[in-house]
C-alpha cells in the first residue's frame, strides 16, 4: 500500500486520541472518588495531573497540524484529522472540569446536600464519555445519535439537582443568631454544589461534541454539530 508512513501516522493519531480519552476519564473518575471520600490527596493528584493532559493535547494538536501541512489529506482522512483535532479540545476541557471537581473537594468541608446523588450524575457522564470514544474508535454512527439523546436525560438530572439545591437554600432557616461565617459557609456550599452540577453537565456536552464530530468523521453528517 502506498503512503504507509502516512497511514501509520493516521492510525497513531487515532490511538493517541483514544489514549488521551482514557487519561481524561481516569482523571474524572478519580475526581469523583475524591469528592465522595473527601480524599484530599487524590484530589491533589487530579489537579497536578492536568498538566499531563494539557501536554498531550498540545502534542496531538501539533500532530494534526503536521498531517494537514505535510500530507494534504482529503476525504475520510481529512475528516478523521479535523474531527480528532476538535475532539482533543473537548477532551482537554473535560480534563479541566475534572480539575474543577477536585478543587471543589479541597474547598469543601462538609456534605450539605445528601439528597443530590452527584455520584450517579458523575457515573453517567463517565459512561457518556466512554461511549462517545467507543463510537469514535468503532465509527459507530448509531451510538452517536444515542449519546445525543442521553444528554437530554443528563440535562434533566442536572436541572433537578440544581432545583433541589436551590429549594434547600430557600428552606434553610437563617436566623438572627447565625454568624456571618455560617452564612458565608452556606453560600459557598450552595455555590460549590451548583458549580459541580454545572461542570458535570458540561462533561456531558463535551461527550456529545465528541459524538457529533465522530458522526461528521464517519459520514460527513453535521446534524449533531449545530
Amino acid at each position: 500500500m502506498p503512503r504507509e508512513s502516512y497511514q501509520e501516522k493516521l492510525d497513531a493519531l487515532r490511538s493517541d486520541v483514544l489514549y488521551m480519552s482514557e487519561m481524561v476519564v481516569d482523571r474524572l473518575r478519580l475526581a469523583l472518588e475524591a469528592m465522595e471520600q473527601k480524599d484530599e490527596e487524590t484530589a491533589k493528584r487530579v489537579i497536578e495531573g492536568d498538566d499531563e493532559v494539557n501536554e498531550l493535547y498540545l502534542d496531538l494538536e501539533e500532530d494534526c497540524i503536521d498531517l494537514l501541512a505535510l500530507q494534504q489529506p482529503v476525504a475520510g482522512d481529512l475528516r478523521l484529522i479535523a474531527s480528532s483535532f476538535k475532539i482533543t479540545t473537548d477532551l482537554e476541557r473535560i480534563g479541566d472540569l475534572a480539575t474543577n471537581l477536585a478543587e471543589y473537594t479541597l474547598d469543601a468541608d462538609r456534605d450539605m446536600f445528601p439528597e443530590v446523588d452527584i455520584q450517579a450524575i458523575g457515573r453517567t457522564t463517565i459512561e457518556m464519555v466512554e461511549d462517545a470514544m467507543d463510537a469514535y474508535a468503532e465509527e459507530d454512527v448509531d451510538a452517536c445519535y444515542e449519546l445525543a439523546e442521553r444528554d437530554d436525560e443528563l440535562d434533566e438530572a442536572c436541572r433537578r439537582a440544581s432545583e433541589t439545591v436551590m429549594r434547600d437554600l430557600i428552606e434553610t432557616e437563617i436566623d438572627t443568631e447565625s454568624s456571618e461565617e455560617d452564612v458565608e459557609a452556606l453560600m459557598n456550599d450552595v455555590s460549590r454544589m451548583l458549580l459541580t452540577v454545572r461542570d458535570l453537565e458540561r462533561v456531558g456536552d463535551h461527550a456529545v461534541n465528541v459524538a457529533a464530530r465522530t458522526l461528521y468523521m464517519v459520514e460527513k453528517d453535521d446534524e449533531l454539530i449545530y
Binding site: 500500500m1 503512503r3 502516512y6 489529506p73 482529503v74 476525504a75 475520510g76
Partner: peptide
C-alpha cells in the same frame, strides 16, 4: 476515496 487518499 482510496485513490485520492493515496491508498492505491
Amino acid at each position: 476515496e482510496d485513490y485520492i487518499t493515496g491508498k492505491f
